[in-house]
Design a protein around this nucleic acid. Sequence first.
DNA 1: TTGTTTCATTGCAATATTACGATTAATAAT
DNA 2: ATTATTAATCGTAATATTGCAATGAAACAA
Lengths: 116, 116
Amino acid sequence: MKQYTYKMGLTKSEIFTEQQNKIALIAKVFGHPARVAILEHLFRINSCVCGDLVDEIGLAQPTISQHLKELKHLGLIKGSIEGTSVCYCINLENWMNMKKVMLVFLDQDISKVNLC
Amino acid sequence: MKQYTYKMGLTKSEIFTEQQNKIALIAKVFGHPARVAILEHLFRINSCVCGDLVDEIGLAQPTISQHLKELKHLGLIKGSIEGTSVCYCINLENWMNMKKVMLVFLDQDISKVNLC
DNA sequence: TTGTTTCATTGCAATATTACGATTAATAAT
DNA sequence: ATTATTAATCGTAATATTGCAATGAAACAA
């Protein structure tokens, strides 16, 4: 999964574990409501083109296109060209892998946590 | 949980659902490996002060302090003053609530997803 | 009191993100 | 061939993020 190995700008990625960088890169993509909305829409609707999303979400076409690019970059969606339009959908295999990574982080052992 | 209702800069939060904004705000905080590392450290170690984290993580003290502030802001950690140092720990109740929100998003129904 | 420790805050430079108008590229329709 | 449709890309403005040196504030130690 080379999607998870990007540089993060000013972020000093090299001092963190691969796992920590993975989680951060995934989370960063989820860190915008438009991308959350796009994913939810793709889960609800079977098939989808970019134009639908522009109407559905209410941002300009270049903006949606840019968000789609980031989701594609992480591998969570894939698009297939159909005439003049592009059919985007969830990349299930990568979604499952992503989920696994996030669950390891979210399901941390709380039994030994000290309260202060 | 008023932690989830912040403005997101250029982001047009008003056109998204409260749920979508919640998820994005949580994810944004997880979108930096230092904050992931801090949380993992707080789960591993019972109690913790900022200085420990500076040594542990390898960023300058003001940088760690800033990341701690964001985690505190979302309510995922809380700090209690102990002399000259501050004891930070996980806010378990808020952690559980956060987890619930994220799991609803991650555990979306994949049975009806169309592949393309 | 004077210094020491510890963490927060301020200020700033470098870079990233968000959003959109304008344009381009590619296909489809007439 | 010409025009329409659709989505990607470019360019740019506004804003946010990251990181750290310098400084500040508060509690403790001598």
